[in-house]
Design a protein around this nucleic acid. Sequence first.
DNA 1: TCTTAAGTAATAATAACTCTTAAATAAGTT
DNA 2: AACTTATTTAAGAGTTATTATTACTTAAGA
Lengths: 147, 147
Amino acid sequence: MESKERIMEEFRRKGFRATPQRIVIAQIVLKSKDHPTAEQIYQAVKKKYPTLSPATVYQTLHLLTEIGLLQELGFSDRVSRYDPNASPHINIICRNCGKIQDYQAESIKGLWSQIIMELGFKPIGQRLDIYRHCDQCQANMHNNQVL
Amino acid sequence: MESKERIMEEFRRKGFRATPQRIVIAQIVLKSKDHPTAEQIYQAVKKKYPTLSPATVYQTLHLLTEIGLLQELGFSDRVSRYDPNASPHINIICRNCGKIQDYQAESIKGLWSQIIMELGFKPIGQRLDIYRHCDQCQANMHNNQVL
DNA sequence: TCTTAAGTAATAATAACTCTTAAATAAGTT
DNA sequence: AACTTATTTAAGAGTTATTATTACTTAAGA
Ligand SMILES: [Mn+2]
Ligand SMILES: [Mn+2]
Ligand SMILES: [Zn+2]
Ligand SMILES: [Zn+2]
């Protein structure tokens, strides 16, 4: 799901044009592991495509979300983050620094399908967040207490 | 967790003043069942307390979140919704109209404790969303197709 | 009652995101 | 290869939920 050809095919199959801007943005975001913001994606893409505008980034991220290759995660600070993994998994999120890490275990699949069965309908998506303070932030907090 | 006295006690216990504004806002939001927005809470509170300002609503909602009586749910449309149920449960959310309905089943507790055990740390919160199109929206969509 | 740190209301400021539009172009067609 | 056109892009203006600022008010302890 990361090669240029695969991405072009995916856009065209859904009836959208495979423009160089879209391809570069898709390549960057689909291989990302840290749930980047639109701004972070824009900064990364600009290196390969300096004339690109932020509006194109936003449009393309929405398009990728629409065709199911991406999940947009809204937060209360009003800055969305983008997750190339749209299948059921847990996002472990630090409430202090915002770092997000995926937790995808076999056990979740089983437990999840059981809940879906109970619900009695087929969801079109899901979002499973667990909040904590990451090791680094916990260490920092401790240091600040000591000082 | 809804009586005036209980709410006043809770504010004071955490070192905050129990002002009439805070009490009215807390009463409204803590008994809500439909995950209201700040604006909806403001409109409801204004009826009982007409001079109240939106800034006070925002501040109080943040305060209630901080002391653990409320959970703020951020969305990609940048409008947060507030959930008086901060314990592990599933929010069934309509992607079309935004309606949110709680699903709290015994089975979730089991799923939850098993995942916590696997993770090896104690979370400070969680968010479990399932997305769908609600019955009403599904009916509307169907009608529009037919017309 | 007095004192004062904390809280409120009003208003201005912020910023992520969306809208608008003229110019550019992907991708078919000849 | 040139032509055609609907789609897409870049730039800038606009939107709006939320936050910051500040002068006035008040809860609550002494
Ligand atoms: Mn993820
Ligand atoms: Mn809920
Ligand atoms: Zn952290
Ligand atoms: Zn609906």
